[in-house]
Design a protein around this nucleic acid. Structure first.
Length: 234
DNA sequence: CCATTAAGAGTGT
DNA sequence: ACACTCTTAATGG
């Protein structure tokens, strides 16, 4: 099971503060949950009882719209928080759904336990605050991108985001998403994504091996969306 | 291990 | 957006 002392997720806020003597009594309140690929572990509108961290694996966080249109809000990898508002906040319900993209191990803190941790460890609480501020900023940037970028630009931006967040090995992105997932993240349809990816392939900017994608010319792709990214934020 | 089915990718209209 | 083909992955006996 996931152990905070031996855990290698140095980006995890809990891990970062695991040396604090006050935290030890809380760490054994943590639950470990195993999730199979494509399993949904948070359902939008469901009562929120706590907060998740990805221990190992990849997760997509999404909002469900009308007639099974989905909007992927963000992705999470090892050490990252899922269910932002489950821990505290005014709403009693999750405002998002979360689904494992591969077999994933989650850490879970119940609402009450988390509250006690935060009250006991100001430094951790402060880091949580910084995290939430960054998330809000990120979210605002994404709104701007979704409204101001063209479809092609949004697909490119998605690809670069995956490269940034999950990296590549052997020239292929370490995360494998369906075309539908790219569509749901880029705010388009699957067909538009497929066509855009085909175009990028023809232009030798992108490589596809089955459903795995590889970025061949990152600087050209970055250049294409630079007018949206060079001013403030990424 | 192979065969059947389901899911996903890609293209034309 | 829809209909269709082709490919790949999952299932189960």
């Amino acid at each position: 099971m996931a152990n905070c002392i031996t855990c290698e997720n140095t980006n995890c806020l809990i891990k970062k503060n695991s040396k604090d003597p006050n935290i030890l009594s809380f760490l054994n309140k943590k639950h470990t949950i195993k999730c199979k690929k494509s399993q949904q572990f948070i359902m939008e509108g469901t009562p929120a009882h706590g907060l998740f961290f990805a221990f190992k694996g990849k997760v997509k966080v999404l909002k469900t719209g009308v007639d099974d249109r989905e909007q992927i809000v963000r992705f999470a990898k090892d050490g990252e928080i899922i269910g932002h508002r489950g821990g505290f906040g005014s709403s009693k319900y999750y405002s998002i759904s979360a689904q494992a993209l591969e077999n994933t191990t989650l850490c879970y803190f119940a609402k009450e336990d988390l509250k006690n941790i935060l009250l006991a460890i100001p430094r951790l609480t402060f880091e949580f605050m910084l995290f939430y501020a960054d998330e809000l900023s990120e979210s605002e940037t994404r709104v701007r991108k979704l409204t101001q970028m063209s479809v092609r630009e949004r697909v490119i931006d998605s690809l670069l985001h995956m490269e940034n967040k999950f990296g590549s090995s052997d020239g292929l992105l370490s995360i494998t998403l369906s075309r539908k997932d790219y569509a749901d993240y880029s705010g388009t349809t699957e067909e538009q994504v497929i066509r855009t990816l085909s175009a990028l392939k023809k232009e030798k900017l992108l490589l596809a091996e089955g459903r795995r994608l590889g970025i061949l010319n990152a600087s050209a792709l970055k250049a294409e969306i630079s007018k949206h990214t060079f001013s403030l934020n990424s």
